[in-house]
């Protein structure tokens, strides 16, 4: 008992346990116990992030740099050949990591901002706002989202901003449902009631009382939603109504080079070219799914159940 604090504070009490593990240590311990599939997923995601962030440094040529030979075969100058107007495929794949994944990430964040925010408001408020939002979401979810996205794109036209807004709003309906259903169980807790009686505002209750307690399902949902958004955007771009050229994007790259596949009999490498961007998409979704799977397993407390 060297010194006694004048006022009580939970934060001080906590720091009294000096030897407590830092977050970094905890993360290391958790990671050491992770299964190979999750490690594989994390390595892949990390690799995509690095490639996306440093695309201009890694890529051998520019995003829309045109070379004289269209559909060039794989060789030393163009490792994966060139596309229908002579752009280097490898460079476009690398820039695609930045564009496709970047747009999908922004869209997912936006949909969590909209859906999560409204979901929390609906869960806390439980009055007519909840009713209006919930029934509205029911109706929006009755239309398959790809079809709805196509209708909206035909009205507003295909541009990156429109694409992000449309998919974010459509996807926010799913986030809203999940957030509302998990938050409803937390809202009735005594500590939320206490915060209300203390006179805290809606923003405080949302951020400080409820959000920390519904984080694990939301984080897992973020991974799954990202996959879904990523696949939807890739599908729309593949259909030619998503991300527009000359922006390098994996979905439209598949479509542009699809005709090469017929030459697989004569040159297998040429036949594989359209599959490269497609497998870039597939690999990332599989990796994210692996990590989410492990994360759910880890946070739900079912740590050591045999498979």
């Amino acid at each position: 008992m060297t010194q006694t604090p004048d006022t009580y504070s939970a934060a001080n009490e906590k720091t009294a346990f000096a030897a407590e593990r830092t977050r970094w240590d905890k993360a290391k311990i958790v990671l050491r116990k992770s299964p190979w599939s999750a490690r594989f997923g994390m390595v892949v995601i990390l690799a995509y992030m690095i490639v996306g962030l440093f695309a201009p440094i890694i890529a051998p040529y520019g995003e829309a740099e045109v070379f004289p030979v269209p559909f060039a075969p794989w060789d030393a100058t163009h490792i994966f050949g060139t596309d229908q107007i002579g752009r280097d495929i490898l460079s476009r794949l690398i820039y695609g990591a930045r564009n496709t994944v970047g747009i999908a990430l922004v869209t997912t964040f936006l949909s969590f901002l909209i859906g999560g925010g409204l979901g929390l408001v609906a869960a806390i408020n439980r009055s007519w706002i909840d009713q209006v939002l919930s029934r509205g979401v029911d109706v929006l979810m009755a239309i398959p989202s790809l079809i709805f996205a196509l209708v909206l794109l035909s009205i507003f036209g295909s541009s990156a901003v429109n694409l992000i807004m449309i998919i974010a709003v459509l996807d926010a309906t799913r986030v809203f449902r999940l957030t509302r259903s998990v938050a409803v169980n937390v809202v009735v807790m005594e500590y939320v009631e206490a915060a209300r009686l203390r006179g805290e505002g809606l923003g405080w209750i949302m951020r400080r009382e409820i959000l920390p307690n519904i984080m694990p399902p939301l984080v897992a949902e973020f991974g799954l939603r990202f996959c879904f958004v990523f696949l939807t955007i890739a599908a729309l771009s593949f259909l030619g109504v998503g991300i527009q050229p000359p922006t390098a994007d994996w979905g439209s790259m598949v479509r542009e080079n699809a005709s090469l596949i017929q030459f697989a009999q004569y040159d297998l490498k040429a036949g594989l070219t359209p599959l490269l961007p497609a497998s870039a998409i597939a690999l990332l979704t599989v990796a994210v799914n692996f990590v989410v799977d492990w994360f759910l397993h880890h946070t739900s407390g079912l740590k050591d159940t045999p498979k």
Partner: peptide
């Protein structure tokens, strides 16, 4: 489940119509 439809489609095209 985790593959996009067009990926499955093109792998099938590669195997069953081209090779």
């Amino acid at each position: 489940i985790s593959f996009p439809e067009f990926f499955v489609a093109y792998v099938l095209i590669l195997c069953l119509t081209s090779l």
